[in-house]
Amino acid sequence: MSTNQMHIDPYERNWMIFSFVLLVLFATAVSVAAFGMGIQVPAPEQRVDPKTVATDPNSPWSNPGLREVSAGKYDAYILAHAVPNWEYLPKEITVPVGSSVSFYVTSSDVQHGFKIQDTNANFMVLPGQVSKLTVKFDKPGTYNFICTEYCGSGHGVMYGAVIVTP
């Protein structure tokens, strides 16, 4: 039946094919980066109780800081909190150049962010959840990590640093 025919102009058909190919290209690029080059986003790590995570002696965040797992490999347990004064604990960690550091970050109060400047590490920090990403530091220098989610009036002063020594 002629009334059921879909009319598509040839120019329009070409444009749609072009759009489709373009999107497939983008999707491929993202997939190659994710699965071929391993540029991955955070995955569920662990759930915690935000009310006790900073005080329970069995919780690593009751004594946040850097642990050396093996030569050149570190775990950094970092606690983000708005109460009382918008900071990360610890505020600073120091590792030698070439170190691979896995960050385990959680919050004892509101939502925060955690973005290490000049790296691909950037994630949300939620109370009740642990966020984890691993970063390899190949160049010496000071890498600030900053809060990227609104967490109250001190949001803009909340930051810390990874110091990578030569």
């Binding site: 690029a29 993202v30 950037n122 990227t148």
Partner: peptide
């Protein structure tokens, strides 16, 4: 929207 590209853009 690009999954891992977003790592450098998220909440900036």
């Amino acid at each position: 929207a690009s999954y891992n590209v977003n790592l450098v853009l998220h909440n900036t």
